[in-house]
Computed example of a mutant assay.
Amino acid sequence: MTSALCAVLFSLITWQVLADGPLLAPDRALSRALVRAVPDSVTERLADLGNVQVAVPVLALAMAYALRRGRRLAALAAGAAMALVPALIVPLKEWTARPGPLEPWAAGYFPSGHTATALTAYTAAALLLAPHTRRRWPLPAAAALTALTAAGLVLRGFHWPLDVLASLLLCTPLLLGVRWAAGRSTRRSSG
């Protein structure tokens, strides 16, 4: 059900972007209200949390830990989810060719690759680590890192709010697959 809802909402937003639909007016208004509301030096660092060089090593370490704990299926699912991010995002950016909030002459802002990278890397890492921690900090930490990335991208003017939302919707089904695999790996390793 969750994956289907994400697909429907993602399709609706993509259609609005392609058709310059009515959802883009509040998207633009929200962006105008938020861009540069926080100093660039802060928002650029937040946006950088979604860089491949920052987020993917976190996932790689969690995958290595999961492999060491005998959770191959979970580690493989997390790696596959991360590999699917550019395979999905890059063609969508080319197809939609949405201009950026501060660079109307440029194209390729929809959906947000940084948001997709942050959400997938940090959440998949949290799903791999969660069964091995006494406290439940990994998922809230992943949510916070993703939210900070998204906020930095919108506040700095690197992405429209709908670009960020679309990436969250696009990657959620990938992470549901990682959660399923992590659950199976946990049962096998404890059984």
Rank of each mutant, 00 (worst) to 15 (best):
E103R: 15
E103Q: 15
E103W: 15
P104V: 14
P104C: 15
A106L: 15
A107C: 15
A107E: 15
Y109S: 15
Y109T: 15
Y109V: 14
F110K: 11
F110P: 12
F110S: 11
P111G: 13
S112Y: 13
S112E: 10
S112L: 12
S112K: 13
H114T: 09
T115G: 10
T115M: 14
A116S: 14
T117S: 12
A118V: 09
A118G: 10
A118T: 05
A118W: 05
L119C: 10
L119H: 11
L119Q: 14
T120V: 09
T120I: 09
T120M: 06
A121H: 11
A121F: 13
Y122W: 10
Y122H: 08
Y122K: 07
T123C: 13
A124R: 06
A124P: 05
A125H: 09
A125N: 08
A125Y: 09
A126I: 04
A126V: 04
L127P: 07
L128C: 07
L128D: 06
L128M: 08
L129C: 08
L129D: 06
A130I: 06
P131R: 10
P131C: 08
T133K: 12
T133I: 07
T133G: 08
R134E: 06
R136W: 11
W137G: 04
P138T: 03
L139V: 08
P140L: 05
P140R: 05
P140S: 04
A142K: 01
A143W: 01
A144L: 04
A144W: 01
L145H: 04
T146G: 00
T146S: 01
A147P: 00
L148W: 02
T149E: 00
A150P: 00
A151V: 00
G152E: 06
L153R: 13
V154A: 03
V154Q: 02
V154K: 02
L155E: 01
L155T: 02
L155M: 05
R156Y: 14
G157W: 04
G157R: 03
H159F: 04
H159N: 05
H159R: 02
P161Y: 01
P161T: 02
L162I: 12
L162A: 11
D163T: 11
V164Y: 03
V164K: 01
V164D: 02
V164A: 05
A166I: 09
A166W: 07
S167C: 12
